[in-house]
Design a protein around this nucleic acid. Structure first.
Lengths: 136, 136
DNA sequence: TATGCACCCTGTAGCAACTACAGGGTCAAG
DNA sequence: CTTGACCCTGTAGTTGCTACAGGGTGCATA
């Protein structure tokens, strides 16, 4: 299959596919006589793995490690679990942080009563961290 | 005050202060004879506003608009409210998205029973989006 | 007076993970 | 034989910084 078809099959931008190849995340495929990339099912599977992992927020380097494990079924899978667990912790931390932001923003936004910028509580609150109800 | 003092006073990296000046977020300060930047209270206030807004996740462009309003107290503050409200919505959307990720990751991580990568449910789940319980 | 050290300057390059061209080649249909 | 959709490489842009390299300044100490 050509790159455009792989792109549609996996929902990945063509430029992104070439980018993944350039950074060594996807193996370089065979080429046709016209120098077009020619992909097989293994490529599609691997790219789906990458996209799914990216959608779940794993970094490229994490995915590299996960792919490496996936390429070596005889290895211990503890690493995969550690990577995923660490990532889960990061996601949870990010959720906590964003929740604090949401609370602060809600408080700030709720104070706007319209009128002139000179009297705006939103702008005032942004200038004065001391008004915040908790750390963020 | 010199750039190092402003840096300490606001908890902002020196390079970041110079960066903000370069992109026009902070006005260029006066210079000493030795060509050192010399800041006053107005700079410190403005930089605090910027840092606080960044901490709350506003983009540089949003901050530019907020600063512009802050510089023109006679304008209507509806824009400030709209920027903050839109940002709040984005934060809430991001929280929802991350919560879905957390659920999916929890499900995936929970399935690892140790052993070989070839049998690893984590790696299997990453390769197969169809196993996901909901959109993410 | 010399010299060390902390601080400051400019300009450029790097990070993540893409995305967007510019400038060209290939191929099938009409 | 030309039009249009597709493909190629290579480079530069995005966001918000951060990290040098290679130099100048200013103050205290030997």
């Amino acid at each position: 299959m050509k790159i455009g078809e792989l792109s549609k099959a996996t929902g990945t931008n063509i430029e992104t596919i070439r980018y993944y190849e350039r950074i060594g995340l996807l193996p370089a495929p065979l080429r046709t006589n016209a120098n077009y990339r020619s992909y097989g099912d293994a490529h599609r599977t691997r790219l789906s793995f990458v996209r799914h992992s990216r959608d779940l927020g794993f970094t490229i380097e994490e995915i590299r490690s996960l792919l490496d494990l996936s390429d070596h079924p005889d290895r211990d899978c503890g690493d995969a679990d550690r990577i995923a667990s660490a990532h889960l912790e990061q996601v949870e931390a990010k959720i906590d942080q964003l929740s604090a932001l949401r609370d602060e923003l809600t408080r700030i936004v709720g104070r706007c009563r319209g009128g002139l910028a000179g009297d705006c509580r939103v702008i005032e609150a942004l200038g004065d961290h001391g008004q915040c109800s908790r750390a963020h």
